[in-house]
Nucleic acid binder design. Structure first.
Lengths: 232, 232
DNA sequence: TTACGTTCGTTATAGCCTGTAACCAAAGAA
DNA sequence: TTCTTTGGTTACAGGCTATAACGAACGTAA
């Protein structure tokens, strides 16, 4: 068995060819997603663009959903890599800067590839249910957020919210179901708030709810982030 | 011309019949949307459920998008009515209570009819562009939010954010493009923040991003709302 | 009452899609 | 050189949108 070194080199030609066509299919699929969203994906039209007939693609993907799943997987991977690359390590910058880098990375990633963002976090494609393991992938950016926020002192809003009510236990259950290092629930709460605020503004912006208003959503995001950093 | 009193009574039978079938089509359409989202809408299958053949429905709607547009219109109308009904008038309750009523109304509405919420505020159905006037409808709940928040003293976060930078003018331009009574930009900003936080949590919840965590998004919403009411 | 236009349904058809079945050619391995 | 696996083909079933051509029934008006 070849060591699976670099993807499509140093491999028996058959396997090499297969990888190349798989790549070509997925590239064209991303194009379609970029143009019309996940529901616009069509195996037939991809095949046509490749100079093949429709059924040929069923040698590579069991069905449309399988291709979609692969795209979702790649999407999560790409997002995680983008975030990892953009956020400086724990020792390289102060936590506030790291947080701003995180937010900025997610913002620009979604702005540059809106349909990709919507594919991962938007309305589910009808009839399609993402497999379990994609959720795991989805957690990678959140883990970065945990890591960054753990360095900041918890704000009064979080400490108060966690002191009473059901949230404390829910958050605790979540973080240690995730394994890894223990994390105070205040930090987890702040991460959720950060994520939700960011997602809210991103998705409203992507759908175009801001265009008619003349308000720059990124400015609003700045306000929200400042408030969060101030501990509220 | 009949006075268009109650929709389908006191009308020539032909028109009456037409209204009834229109209603039946839209009801079945809502059923389909409830089951599979906007993209699952199929004129053909609606016709079948009505005991008709596909092309018959083209006497009632020019095409699939026309039906979808009608649903979007009805959706916005229904949401606006739900909000209007749930939020007490300016004299009937203190502003904080009114705001909580607003948030609760939107939350429950989206929870009860998730696909309807996603149809209005989620990813656009591929190939479909909502007509201009639906955006106007979309503003009605926001107007209520304006009305409620205008009664509350502006918080430090908003006053600071509006004192410098481009946000002040953007918000001002927005509110008086909307006409109606003049509104300080701080209030508009708080409305946007409230809306975005709410939308973020709602859409994450609807897509199921919270299910795996065990965290109750409504609790997080409470935290976010408290912070906003505290002026942050 | 009869004649006529409008409305609402039908069937037929074109063109897209997903997905399966049956078949065939070429590539690699034994 | 044979024989299996792989990757393509065509044919087909069934779904969808949408248009065209046609017919029946409704309601009106002579």
């Amino acid at each position: 068995m070849p060591e699976a070194a670099s993807p499509s080199s140093r491999r028996p030609p058959r396997a090499r060819y297969r990888e190349l066509t798989l790549r070509e299919i997925k590239d064209l699929a991303w194009e379609q997603v970029a143009e019309g969203g996940g529901a616009a994906l069509s195996l037939n039209s991809i095949a046509r663009r490749m100079g093949l007939t429709g059924p040929a693609l069923y040698r590579y993907f069991a069905n449309r959903d399988a291709l979609l799943t692969e795209l979702v997987r790649e999407g999560y991977r790409g997002l995680a890599e983008a975030v990892d690359a953009a956020v400086p390590g724990a020792g390289e910058a102060d936590p506030e800067l790291r947080l701003r880098a995180f937010v900025h990375a997610l913002w620009t990633w979604s702005a540059e590839m809106p349909h990709r963002y919507l594919l991962l976090f938007g309305a589910p494609v009808p009839g399609y249910a993402a497999p379990e393991d994609t959720f795991e992938q989805a957690f990678r950016p959140m883990a970065v957020l945990f890591d960054v926020l753990a360095e900041l002192p918890p704000g009064p809003a979080e400490t108060r919210a966690v002191s009473g009510g059901p949230l404390r236990d829910q958050l605790a259950g979540w973080v240690d179901a995730r394994g890894g290092e223990p994390l105070p629930p205040e930090v987890a709460l702040r991460a959720v708030r950060c994520w939700a605020r960011l997602h809210g503004l991103i998705s409203l912006a992507l759908v175009g709810q801001f265009t008619a208003t003349g308000v720059d959503p990124e400015e609003v995001l700045r306000v929200e982030l400042d408030a969060l950093l101030a501990g509220h």
